[in-house]
Design a protein around this nucleic acid. Structure first.
Length: 477
DNA sequence: ATAGGGTTAG
């Protein structure tokens, strides 16, 4: 039964359980507890409670594990009063609660109830001779911090120091993270100092948390100085810390420093993830350093720098933007050679730029390749393609992609409709409306009626056309 | 069989 439950096969476990009863065997406390726990784990709280009730009927005495599981069930459902009832019940039945039971309750009271009651229970368990450890408190502090309750986490933190425990690096970093989450960077820094005073050496997670916190609050120079302090202390920044700081530097337009940091990272020999590399490359591009990005990309293929499909997306787009159409096409062609798979985004970039370059047949070829490879089509791509085609006056091709939208039951986005309307409002283009697929061509009349928010078309079929505020057009009759 | 630590994710 135990192994069945472990593999999520609760139904079979239940069958084993039932067959035991059928054979006249009386399931023991452990069997009941296993089943109870399995149900609780799957969120089937009602079934779990039925098992618990069944035990009392069959006169199987719940033990500490059974109670603990039931208490956990109530705590998870946020029914703390019920949890406390079970807690009293077990004490009345002469079963002393253990650490697991206290942990459940304390965690629940601290994170979703009364902090004072939580602390009361902590004192109670200490009085009973149990020594809650750092792991135990760590999860409570994390739970509070996750909810943005850094001050309450601090309260518990101070409390455990008062009762003579020594928080470790992990607990300090949890609390620091808690303050970072609510943008209280000064408080977070106080904790860093407290940590140093306690004789603990901040590690890369602590520094990384703070660097990230400073970045997210726009205090990039503070982030940089911590970054510096970290290196001085011999704490090696990880790829992720670099990613955070590079992203932020480039967002702030600090290209020179970003380049320094990038070179430093590559030079240090750590593995540079594709995500970090992409952050750097796209940051360069948004800071008008496309040429540099392209040069870098061409030389950094090997070594400790990883690439992924997103890297190629960025570079293909950049090559188009810098009029390197052939190189863009070559790069696209090389994707499968490198062993990567183009994403919808890749196809999106290829098609829209090819159309903008007037290479319409190439764009169609890319589209059919996409269909052949089974890459899932999305509405955004089709709408985008329709718009760039319309902008070039390519009605027939736009019509083809509009039919695809229809076929797939996607929505024609409001901006696509707007473009259709403004295109066909031009006297010279009006007649070309018949080049559109029938399902779409009705739109041209809209242009002559009303292009604002609500229009009625055509009067004889009463079709209501509404431009939603979320940017989608809906047509209903 | 019960509770059960940390930072950044296009």
């Amino acid at each position: 039964m135990s192994s069945l439950c472990k593999h999520g096969r609760n139904k079979e476990a239940r069958e084993v359980f039932d067959s035991m009863s059928a054979k006249g065997q009386k399931p023991d406390v452990i069997s009941y507890s296993i089943l109870l726990h399995a149900y609780a784990n799957e969120g089937m709280m009602d079934d779990a409670m039925l098992i618990f009730k069944e035990m009392t009927h069959k006169e199987v005495k719940p033990n500490v594990v059974t109670y603990s599981t039931v208490i956990a069930v109530f705590c998870r459902m946020g029914q703390l009063d019920c949890a406390m009832n079970i807690f009293s019940q077990m004490i009345n039945h002469g079963i002393p609660p253990n650490e697991a039971v206290y942990h459940c309750l304390i965690q629940a009271f601290c994170c979703q109830g009364d902090l004072v009651k939580g602390k009361e229970l902590i004192s109670e368990m200490i009085d009973k001779g149990m020594r809650p450890n750092n792991v135990f408190f760590g999860s409570i502090i994390k739970g509070l911090c996750r909810k943005g309750r850094a001050m309450d986490a601090q309260d518990i933190f101070d409390f455990i120091i008062r009762i003579g425990l020594h928080p470790n690096v992990i607990m300090f970093s949890s609390l620091i993270h808690g303050y970072c989450l609510v943008s209280k960077m000064d408080e977070a820094m106080k904790i860093l100092h407290a940590m140093k005073s306690a004789g603990l050496q901040p590690n890369v997670v602590v520094y990384g948390t703070l660097v990230n916190g400073y970045c997210k609050t726009g205090r990039i120079d503070n982030a940089l100085s911590l970054f510096h302090e970290m290196s001085l202390k011999g704490v090696k920044p990880t790829n992720l810390v670099y990613k955070v700081i590079l992203g932020e530097l480039l967002l702030a337009g600090r290209v020179v420093v970003a380049k320094e940091k990038f070179n430093e990272m590559v030079g240090s020999g750590i593995l540079v993830s594709a995500a970090t590399y992409n952050t750097f490359l796209s940051g360069l591009c948004t800071n008008d350093c496309s040429e540099e990005a392209i040069m870098l990309f061409k030389k950094t293929h090997a070594g400790n720098v990883k690439i992924d499909i997103r890297t190629l997306d960025i570079m293909i787009a950049e090559m188009f933007k810098t009029r390197r159409t052939e190189e863009a096409k070559d790069l696209f062609a090389s994707i499968s050679v490198i062993g990567l798979i183009p994403s919808v985004e890749t196809y999106h970039i290829m098609m829209t730029y090819l159309i903008k370059e007037g290479m319409l047949d190439d764009a169609d070829t890319v589209f059919s390749t996409m269909q052949k490879t089974g890459c899932p089509l999305n509405s955004r791509l089709l709408n985008y393609v329709v718009r760039v085609l319309l902008e070039r006056g390519e009605i027939v091709r736009a019509g083809n992609y509009l039919s695809k939208i229809d076929e797939k039951n996607f929505t024609v986005e409001a901006s696509s409709i707007e473009l259709l309307i403004s295109f066909f409002s031009k006297e010279t283009c009006r007649k070309r409306v018949e080049l559109l697929p029938a399902s779409i061509s009705f739109l041209w009349k809209l242009a002559t009626i009303d292009t604002s928010h609500v229009s009625l078309y055509p009067p004889e079929t009463l079709v209501l056309f509404v431009m939603n505020h979320d940017g989608y057009a809906t047509v209903s009759s």
